[in-house]
């Protein structure tokens, strides 16, 4: 189900929501076509833990919670009064165009960026190095240490990343067709992206934050990465947040989606229901952002 104000938001949605079209908080396709820029979600945008159960404590303690969070760089808002709660045990697509706040949100969850205003909680804790032990994070536009071979990267991860499983990494390297003796400096961007993804998903942790894992990757590598994600993530129940603005290939991964724009949540809900309503995530995105 898509989130709306009557379920999870305030009793009286902001006036800006009313201008989008009925029902409040749920932009329909006609509203997208006629209303110009999408309105922000009423506060807070809470994605309910629909589908498979995420455990008894899941509803009371979300995997990720942002309340009234604002972050500015100079005069520019990266995040603007964001309210979002994401349940545990789901694969969440965090979608939106460049500059919509996806990476800033992920960095805040990792304690790499501090909010000017508001409260951020991840796995029920304040972001920071202690919480980071339970999170596998793939940074945006990251590179790997050029002098490392794949095997050296794995031993690095084994000694520095809690929950890293070497056997899983080796299996994934085989699956993703990565030569263990190859140096990162000799890799294509696609191969390097696959290596970095393996370093993340070969960890046994409750939360995964993958920031633009498909950015700048060729189609073949992208397919490999997605296959790897499906293969590995389906084995266990984990909370996975994947940010991307290239959703056509990736949308099959998501069972929850959050659409961001201008640092705020414009739509959030169950992926199947959005697909049923709009045809596909890509179509939803087109309607949201192109008007």
């Amino acid at each position: 189900m898509t989130t709306n104000s009557s379920d999870f938001g305030p009793t009286n949605p902001p006036a800006s929501m009313n201008s989008v079209g009925p029902p409040a908080g749920v932009p329909d396709s006609a509203a997208f076509r006629s209303a110009g820029p999408p309105a922000r979600m009423p506060d807070p945008a809470v994605v309910p833990p629909t589908g498979q159960s995420a455990g008894p404590g899941a509803e009371s303690e979300p995997a990720v919670s942002l309340q009234g969070v604002t972050k500015r760089y100079g005069d520019k808002y990266a995040i603007r009064d964001m309210n979002l709660k994401l349940p545990r045990g789901r694969v969440v697509g965090v979608l939106g165009p460049n500059g919509s706040g996806k990476s800033t949100m992920f960095r805040m969850l990792m304690g790499l960026s501090r909010p000017d205003v508001g409260e951020v909680k991840v796995l029920g804790r304040n972001p920071g190095w202690e919480a980071n032990g339970s999170i596998a994070y793939l940074p945006d536009r990251a590179r790997w240490y050029a002098d490392h071979t794949v095997m050296r990267a794995f031993t690095w991860a084994q000694s520095l990343l809690p929950g890293f499983n070497l056997d899983s990494a080796l299996r994934l390297a085989k699956f993703m067709n990565i030569d263990l003796d190859m140096r990162a400096s000799a890799m294509s961007r696609g191969q390097e992206a696959r290596l970095m993804l393996i370093l993340c998903i070969a960890r046994s942790v409750p939360l995964f934050l993958l920031d633009e894992p498909f950015s700048g990757i060729d189609v073949m590598s992208r397919e490999r990465i997605i296959e790897g994600l499906i293969e590995h993530m389906s084995e266990s129940e984990r909370t996975v947040l994947i940010s991307t603005h290239e959703i056509q290939e990736a949308e099959s991964l998501f069972d929850t989606v959050v659409f961001l724009q201008d640092g705020g949540v414009v739509l959030a809900g169950d992926a199947d229901e959005l697909r049923a309503e709009y045809g596909s995530m890509y179509a939803t995105m087109q309607k949201l952002y192109r008007g």
Partner: peptide, 26 residues
């Protein structure tokens, strides 16, 4: 990982600080 494993924190690898120093020496 089961659904009740949310609170379980993965064990920190032993000697992380020295491992980081070894990594940084390069």
């Amino acid at each position: 990982m089961t659904t009740n494993d949310w609170q379980v924190e993965p064990a920190r690898p032993p000697g992380m600080f020295w491992a980081l120093i070894r990594h940084d020496i390069k």
